[in-house]
Write a protein that binds this DNA or RNA. Sequence first.
DNA 1: GGCCAGGTGTAAA
DNA 2: TTTACACATGGC
Length: 221
Amino acid sequence: MLDVFNILFERYGRQGWWPVLAANADKKSRGFEVSTGAILTQNTAWRNVEKAIKNLSDKNLLAPELILKTSVSDIAECIKPAGYYNQKAERLKIFSEFFLGEFDKLKEINTGKARQMLLSVKGIGPETADSILLYALNKPVFVIDAYTKRLFSRMLGVDFKTYTEWQDFFHKNLEDIEKQAEMFNEFHALIVEHCKNACKKQPLCEKCSLSSICKAKIPNA
DNA sequence: GGCCAGGTGTAAA
DNA sequence: TTTACACATGGC
């Protein structure tokens, strides 16, 4: 598995997720921006999320206090490019409440407990929770997404049923490395980069080199 | 014009 | 406990 990381890193270089709009943002507003991006990117291309975040920023809404003061319909209007805008506007409001009350606690408590707290928020599922833990809080959790399952199931022939099984597979295979959080951060980003653009040009697995199925969905997955 | 994107919640089977 | 479906814009 480490080989895969090394190949990807050599091929694509450092990804440096998470891109943050406010370059000089303090830690807290960065945390909110990353979390907002994690919610907006649910089943949505990142380029559309960037537009939505810029709209929020331009209207000076990229802060939990301001989101809470704004109507769902006004937020929805801003984030339209990211799709599912009514649902996500509601989710941003719910998360803003959580952010103001609980987010700082996540830094102090253990990762498992922090994950449970995030999962208890409506609109935060396992992938979004893990993205926040990894990319906003620098906790060593591996983010499992559709790309990760697709690439590794084809390349290694593994096929797990649940999110947790997939995540355990990565955690167990990468438990002894140094700077785990930074590595997980880069690895996930590299998997996305590979599957998104160049998978067909330079396949990592035989199945992808045989045909153009690399971008196709896994049947029953 | 169809397919897909850095998923999640809900309700029926 | 699994499966189906709603949510929706924008790029290729």
